[in-house]
Amino acid sequence: MKRKIYRIAEGKNKKIKFIVDHSFDLEVIFQGKNSSAEIVGLVMPKPHTNIIIRTKQIHNYPQSKSNLLIRSVISEGSCVTYEGTIRIEKHARYVDAYQKNETMLLSDTSQIHTSPILEILNHDVKCTHGATVKPISETELLYLQSRGISRLQARKMIVRGFIDGIIKNNLYD
């Protein structure tokens, strides 16, 4: 398993981006006031593999800020286990932490196992997480098909759009 640890010093901002098809362990530790990080990740396992993704956002210092988005596209026969933790220590006031995990299951045999964990030891914080698993929307497919695009092509476009959100950083479409 590959493992990466980032330590973010006072006042620093770090942009972290990863695209993986294997198990991956990411730890982001905020070691100074006003430190912040934006983390985006794309998880695309090869068919018939099981992988584990772990992320940790550890807020040791006040006023630190983190924003995490992980998208998984899971192909045939694969399973992704995602474990995402936000931990805010006792003395870390005014922390703003966010974690989001979005998943698309491409095949009838794909699986996702997701556990977004929050451990909050300080009251003066803002901490939110979200996790969604959504099938490809019938409405979107229908729209594209009504424009003369084949169903298969339409599916590809929708999945492509989901992936591009991470690759091209255009998350607001």
């Binding site: 998943t103 299951l105 491409l106 095949s107 009838d108 794909s110 699986q111 996702i112 196992h113 997701t114 556990s115 977004p116 964990i117 929050l118 451990e119 909050i120 009251h123 003066d124 914080v125 803002k126 901490c127 939110t128 997480h129 979200g130 996790a131 969604t132 698993v133 959504k134 099938p135």
Partner: peptide, 23 residues
């Protein structure tokens, strides 16, 4: 603390989870 687990094995299923902690 929040310790949710979501285990989705069905392609056509949809699941949403959100949690917030604040004062």
């Amino acid at each position: 603390d929040t310790y949710p687990t979501m285990d989705i094995q069905e392609q056509t299923a949809s699941m949403e989870h959100e949690a917030t902690v604040s004062k």
